[in-house]
Amino acid sequence: MPITDPLEEEVAEETRPPHAGPVPQVVAALVALAVGVAGAIGSFGLGLGELTHPGPGLWPFAISIVIAVLSLTLVVTGRGLQDAERFSKATLLTAAGLVTLILLAALLPLIGFEIPSLLLVCVWLRWLGKESWRSSIVISIVTVAAFYLLFVLLLQVPLPRLI
């Protein structure tokens, strides 16, 4: 909408970190292209059928072709786009956060939710949030206790747990 764009851009522009160069743009487009091609091959294998009796693969095949064609266009035209953010040192924080999430999911069925949750909250507070040791520990204990109260005692959700 032409009337409104300048307003929004002016406000939004300043928050974003420096934009990434052409490489991530092209890589992203290539990944999308790969998805499209893989989807097309997979759905072709399912059988396309005919228009009177569409097979299970017809619709996904059509979408995959659209993805592939548009991604190819993006590979060519998207080089100069400035809407991607550079991956910086701060990205490591996100990666670290992600690792803790995976650990939680992996440990949950083995040792229940209490200890992994406690550690997750503590790690996020202390290292990702740079809270003090004291508040990290206090907040994580209170949080896990509150979750126990809410999920286990009040909602009676069958969460894997120790106690």
Partner: peptide, 17 residues
């Protein structure tokens, strides 16, 4: 240590109430 100790003696419950 706490995690190990608790898994060793406890086991995990999932049943609801």
């Amino acid at each position: 240590a706490a995690a190990l100790a608790l898994t060793a003696c406890g086991g995990v419950k999932t049943t609801s109430s």
